[in-house]
Amino acid sequence: MLDDRARMEAAKKEKVEQILAEFQLQEEDLKKVMRRMQKEMDRGLRLETHEEASVKMLPTYVRSTPEGSEVGDFLSLDLGGTNFRVMLVKVGEGEEGQWSVKTKHQMYSIPEDAMTGTAEMLFDYISECISDFLDKHQMKHKKLPLGFTFSFPVRHEDIDKGILLNWTKGFKASGAEGNNVVGLLRDAIKRRGDFEMDVVAMVNDTVATMISCYYEDHQCEVGMIVGTGCNACYMEEMQNVELVEGDEGRMCVNTEWGAFGDSGELDEFLLEYDRLVDESSANPGQQLYEKLIGGKYMGELVRLVLLRLVDENLLFHGEASEQLRTRGAFETRFVSQVESDTGDRKQIYNILSTLGLRPSTTDCDIVRRACESVSTRAAHMCSAGLAGVINRMRESRSEDVMRITVGVDGSVYKLHPSFKERFHASVRRLTPSCEITFIESEEGSGRGAALVSAVACKKACMLGQ
């Protein structure tokens, strides 16, 4: 009897593995994704193909990295998701002549009506938060230079001027797309009239992360975010950046690689679950690469896999709870928690219980395998993109072996128990001629924006502006 049951459990697990095998990517698959990513990057950089390229390769006008001589107080704003952060950054000489960066910050959550109302409502709310922060720190009387981390696709015309191309991540505030974001912020500050600010720089969160990590390690020339969304930036040779005049030196390019796949480059790798996630998203047909990796989508992918296993009578005796059938019910943090389970399955059992399920031991094991399959594919897909960037940098610099540091931020990278190990191992397999160091950014977005502002202020002083 026991043997029969054991055989049935083994057969069930084997069927589960057959279904989950769809998520496995072979090294040849990853090399294919990497080569296609490089081709799209090239198209994004070139003037004649930029418009139709899915990977936009947006110039950021960040050319210099901090040298350690900029000092002063800077205000930093960070808008990239449902939370908005205001930070005071003091850049100065530390002990023994070292450079020191001290920060104080406060988080504000953005109400739904500000995210989806008008641009005026959104930026009025942001300036209200700045006003509140300055009151708390008794700094209303000071006109501070301000660095703005704005983590949406922007076409820069200068370091302090950028046109919002399109909202992502659930934002829909009308009247912002096609307009200068810094102008919208300046107008809102003017409307309030109770404080003055000098907006000197606007950067993407990947750029802010790279600059913040450069402060720790001067070989950091790539910034990457794996959180709600997924994106990367890197220092490109100016001669390859056709959208900006000049051939000397390097400029940081914001790849906006989340949109890779929007022209069909990933079609052969998309599964039924991916198509369902895409169809029910706020932007169907867009940001397809990001939807395979980002935390906004990972939990939902797992939920759809679990429903398939229920329908195949391989999980929960073929019956799903009402909660499990509800879109968004299986949160991405559950994926991390399930994979963090120590082996007694308590954590998995508790999560499934909150979803109205009474799982068996085998159910718990199957749910864990589903989570591992989805998150491992995410790590491997992400590795193909980064390997594409790094191999490109090595080739354009004609280096036999390139040493490089990548600064990384984002909740999936930082909080998932195995993502970074799987990701690092896969990147290294795909970049055999590179020695890569990964560092995690601390308060990256805010500190990085302030350091970019410090560079901009120093330049302005040198130019006598």
Rank of each mutant, 00 (worst) to 15 (best):
R5W: 07
A6Y: 14
A6H: 13
E9L: 12
A11H: 12
A11C: 15
K13P: 15
E14N: 15
K15T: 10
I19W: 08
L20C: 15
A21L: 11
F23W: 11
Q26R: 06
E27D: 03
K31S: 10
K32N: 10
K32S: 07
K32G: 04
V33G: 02
K39D: 11
E40D: 03
E40F: 04
E40H: 00
H50M: 14
M57E: 02
E67I: 04
G68Y: 03
E70C: 06
G72Q: 00
S76I: 02
D78Y: 09
G81F: 14
T82M: 06
N83F: 10
V86G: 02
V86F: 07
V86S: 08
L88A: 07
V89G: 01
V91F: 05
G92P: 01
G92R: 04
E95R: 10
G97N: 09
G97R: 05
S100N: 12
V101C: 05
Q106S: 09
M107C: 07
D113R: 05
A114H: 14
M115I: 13
M115P: 07
T116H: 13
L122I: 08
Y125M: 13
C129R: 04
C129N: 03
C129I: 03
I130W: 06
D132N: 05
D135T: 07
D135R: 06
K136E: 08
K136V: 07
H137Y: 04
Q138M: 13
M139T: 06
H141V: 04
K143V: 00
F148R: 04
F152H: 10
P153Q: 14
D158N: 15
L165Y: 13
T168E: 07
T168R: 10
K169I: 11
K172N: 12
K172T: 03
S174A: 03
N180K: 03
V182D: 11
L185A: 01
L185R: 01
L185C: 06
I189G: 04
I189P: 01
K190D: 01
F195V: 04
V199I: 07
V200G: 02
V200H: 01
A201E: 00
V203D: 00
D205H: 12
D205M: 02
T206C: 10
V207K: 00
V207W: 00
A208R: 01
M210D: 00
S212F: 11
H218N: 14
H218G: 03
Q219A: 15
E221C: 08
G223T: 03
T228R: 06
G229T: 15
N231L: 09
A232P: 04
E237G: 02
M238D: 00
N240W: 01
E242G: 01
V244L: 09
E245V: 02
E245Y: 05
D247V: 01
C252I: 09
V253E: 00
T255V: 15
E256Y: 12
W257M: 05
F260D: 00
F260T: 03
G261V: 02
G261P: 04
S263P: 02
S263A: 09
G264F: 06
E268T: 07
E268Y: 05
L270F: 10
L270C: 06
R275N: 11
S280D: 10
S280E: 14
N283W: 14
N283S: 12
P284G: 14
G285S: 09
L288D: 10
I293P: 01
I293H: 14
G294V: 07
G294T: 15
G295N: 13
K296W: 14
G299Y: 01
E300G: 02
E300A: 06
V302C: 05
L304V: 07
L304K: 04
V305E: 01
L306W: 00
R308I: 03
D311I: 06
N313C: 05
L315G: 06
G318W: 09
E319P: 14
A320E: 14
R325H: 10
T326N: 14
R327T: 14
G328E: 06
A329W: 13
T332H: 13
T332N: 10
R333L: 15
S336L: 07
Q337H: 05
T342G: 02
G343E: 03
R345E: 06
K346H: 15
K346V: 13
I348G: 03
Y349C: 02
I351P: 08
L352M: 02
S353K: 07
T354F: 13
G356D: 09
L357A: 01
T361V: 10
T361R: 03
D363A: 01
C364E: 05
C364A: 03
V367W: 01
R368F: 08
R368E: 03
S373E: 08
V374Y: 02
R377W: 00
A379H: 08
M381K: 01
M381E: 00
G388C: 10
G388T: 13
V389I: 06
N391Y: 11
N391S: 07
R392N: 15
R392Q: 13
M393W: 09
M393D: 11
E395F: 12
S396M: 15
M402N: 10
I404R: 10
V406T: 04
V406A: 05
V412P: 12
H416L: 15
S418F: 08
F419W: 13
F419K: 02
F419Y: 06
K420S: 09
K420E: 10
E421P: 12
R422W: 14
S426E: 08
V427M: 01
R429A: 15
T431E: 04
T431I: 11
T431R: 06
P432V: 14
P432G: 14
S433I: 06
E435F: 13
T437C: 11
E440I: 07
E440A: 07
G448I: 06
A449H: 09
A450K: 14
V452Y: 05
A454G: 10
V455R: 09
V455W: 09
K458D: 12
K458V: 15
C461S: 15
M462R: 10
M462W: 12
